[in-house]
Computed example of a mutant assay.
Amino acid sequence: MIRQLADVHVLVADDQPDVARTLCRPVERAGARLHFVDNGTAALTAATGRPFDLIIVDLKMPPEDWGGLWLLERLQAEGLRTPALVLSGEGSKQQTVRAMRLGAADWVDKDDASTELLDRCAEVHVKWQAQALEEAIGGFPAPLAAHFARYWRATDVDRQVNAGLAALEAVLRFAAMVGLATTPPAPLAGVTAAQLARPSMGTWLTVCTRLLTLASPGSEFTRLLACLIPSGGAQRVQDLVNLRNGIAHGRTTSTAAHADHLDGLLRRFAARTAAFWRADIGVATTMTYDGMLFHAEFDRLRGTSGPFAHTVATTDPTITGQVFLLPHAGAPVTLSPWLVAERAPSSGAYHCFQFDGSDTRPNTKSPLRYANAGDPSDPPPPPSTATWRAAEPWVQ
């Protein structure tokens, strides 16, 4: 079980840094990457800034006397679900009980941490990873949830690898859509019109990594991509893109090692996203204005069921029928023309379609092409009213 901590990102919040480093040394030796802070305020800043797989929280630290409880309360209020393990000292039984009620996954008596912390960290992490795919199927935006559901159902190695690679490509494509919708347009180095007109899995990885190099990449995009690709960690995903190409061209055969590697990556992405990324997508349905704010109604597209009704108060009007990104905090952002949706009149279910290049050699007036974002058995995409003009600012 301890090997499961390899490359696990752990935030450690303790106002006695030397003691914390000593107690956490076995966790670090097991392969975890540790980030230390010495108070709850700094821990909150770190936890809201990038995804962690686990947080170790000392209950008795600043701010005030029980900064660990303050931190857990703030994490809960922010909607962050990163599993937390609390360090409990003498005389803090009441606070430990409260910490568990605030969502802490487990606790360790600080006097016993030198011998117990490693095993407890591994147990908490493995449990969260084990339920990650179910979290994805129920809580991801619909275009991703459908792919993770198919991956969940895959049985033999070939199907697991193929479904896993398809799920990974869906993640890259969806992240790129969010990035293109939320980042001020600018040419992406190394992305040509020909590539974007016939995008591959590698194209979507390139778009994502190049978006990160721009001056102001969208915050929800950077948060989502960080769940898949930590800073400087794109090579692992590139290796899987190469695997996809090798299988497609008959140069490579799926193996159990490939399946295990993919499973680890997808579960970690699913766990981090469920804990850290708090946005939804939804289709705008109706809107009213009270003289100060617009009250927009959305059909939220989450998981493999739904839709779910959702209301947002915003200073800007929304366009009925368009798909929007719905951040945890902040105004809705249209994902058009990168992601579109149609509602089936008979069932009321939505079918999502993602930008997939152009049917003709791209020029300003070329219509955009779309592909099913979820189930391949969905109906064909509707005729496009969007043109290549939307993609031109992004290509060199």
Rank of each mutant, 00 (worst) to 15 (best):
L23N: 09
T45C: 02
A43V: 01
C24R: 00
T45L: 02
T45G: 06
G31Y: 03
A46Q: 15
H9Y: 02
D14F: 10
V10D: 00
T45Q: 12
T45N: 04
L44M: 13
L44G: 07
T22W: 14
R33I: 03
V12F: 12
A42N: 10
D7S: 10
D18W: 11
Q16H: 15
D38E: 14
A6R: 13
R25A: 15
D15F: 08
E28R: 13
D7E: 15
R29G: 01
A30V: 10
G31D: 00
V19P: 01
D7G: 00
N39L: 07
F36D: 03
T22H: 15
A47M: 05
N39W: 04
R21T: 12
Q4F: 07
D18K: 14
L23I: 14
D18T: 15
L5F: 04
L34E: 06
D38L: 01
V19S: 12
H9K: 06
R33H: 13
L23H: 08
C24N: 05
D15R: 06
A47Q: 08
A13E: 03
A43R: 07
A47T: 02
V19K: 13
T45E: 12
V8F: 00
V19H: 13
A20M: 01
V8Y: 02
D14Q: 12
V37A: 01
V37N: 01
L23Y: 02
V19D: 09
V19I: 15
R25V: 05
L44H: 08
Q16T: 07
R29S: 06
A30K: 01
R33G: 00
F36S: 08
N39T: 07
N39F: 05
R21M: 14
T45F: 07
A30T: 09
D14V: 14
Q16P: 14
G40A: 08
P17Y: 05
L23K: 03
D18M: 14
E28N: 11
H9S: 13
